[in-house]
């Protein structure tokens, strides 16, 4: 007796399981996205330690972590213009401007995250 692989009743259970997981993931994603507000400044962390905060209303170009990444702020949006790592993931991440959005460079352990007004800890 060969066990059927396709079309048995476990397949229905699988589909329910997959659908449930996807629905949970999508609802979390939507809730997080809809709760984002216009950001006021970005905080730069290296190795989990806050090193700088830059206002999003002031255009500028900043060298991060001793030059491993270059952060640009332009028209209220922040992006990484250049990175010394081979994969360039943080550069491809594009522009961020809303609270909670972030750019992460795993190689250099640099994180740039947008915060709203009033969350400042360091001097901007």
């Amino acid at each position: 007796m060969q066990k059927k692989i396709f079309g048995n009743k476990k397949m229905i259970a699988d589909i329910i399981l997959i659908a449930a997981v996807l629905i949970i993931a999508l609802s979390v994603f939507l809730i997080v996205e809809l709760s984002r507000k216009e950001g006021a400044f970005v905080r730069v962390s290296v190795n989990g330690e806050r090193v700088a905060e830059y206002s999003l209303s002031v255009d500028g170009e900043y060298s991060l972590n001793g030059g491993t990444n270059i952060l640009v702020i332009e028209n209220g949006e922040a992006y990484i213009k250049w990175a010394d790592c081979p994969r360039q993931i943080c550069v491809k991440d594009g522009k961020i401007s809303r609270t909670g959005e972030r750019i992460t460079c795993l190689e250099n352990r640099v994180v740039v995250e947008v915060f709203g007004k009033g969350d400042e800890i360091l001097e901007v």
Binding site: V28, F29, V32, N47, G48, G100, T104, L106, V111
Partner: peptide, 12 residues
């Protein structure tokens, strides 16, 4: 490892 809980946003 990075002491940064925000990476969790990659989860979705």
């Amino acid at each position: 490892m990075m002491e940064n809980s925000g990476i969790v946003s990659y989860l979705v």
